[in-house]
Design a protein around this nucleic acid. Sequence first.
DNA 1: TGCCAGGCCCTCTTTAGGGCCTT
Length: 219
Amino acid sequence: MPSNDLIAVIDFETTGMTPAQGARATEIAIVLLENGQIVDRFQSLMRTGVYIPSFITQLTGITNAMVAEAPDAGFVMREAARFVGNVPMVAHNASFDSKFWSAELQHAGVAAPHPFACTVLLSRRMYPEARSHSLGNIVDHLGLPRAGRAHRALADAEMAAFLLARIQHDLRERWGIAQPGHELLSGLQRCARPAVGKWLVRQVQENQPCFSKPPALGG
DNA sequence: TGCCAGGCCCTCTTTAGGGCCTT
């Protein structure tokens, strides 16, 4: 039985910045995070027939030859959708990955009703002292492990999952929130940064019966 | 071979401009 704490962290490698201009996915990775631990992984290159520009290959290491031998994108996306089920999703800069998730599932003829939360927005609220909130820089800033080659989908998805687990940990430690699930994360990322402290106090007071002492503002 | 966006946030703001973040 799926836990309420289960969250799917996704990362795409693609041929460009947006599906609106014809960019397609070249690789997908999804990790399932439960109680701060990665409990399952899905990863695959995918073949769409769209050319990969050389600067993308330089960035990701993914070549046109590699995707030519990969499974068809429709097959991969249907498998990915089965893997995710109805679990809510998180990505680092979710506005990017959510567009490719919807577009690739549409190509595959699958509905994509999943809500997304964004670790960039959460990181900006939780760690305003960080100079940069790019995935590599925020992972280094927080002393989290590097999962593998940056700009490959599984490594980036795992690093985003480590970041999310750290955010959930800090929400527990700083604010006394026992189980910071997807709904609270979505609320937090929408909360204006100057009001984060007050918003979290209100969430704790109204929705978190485990809360036993006033949290320290800021930090 | 290669196309190059858009939502969010900050501030010298809000009738705007520019940087960040993703490939």
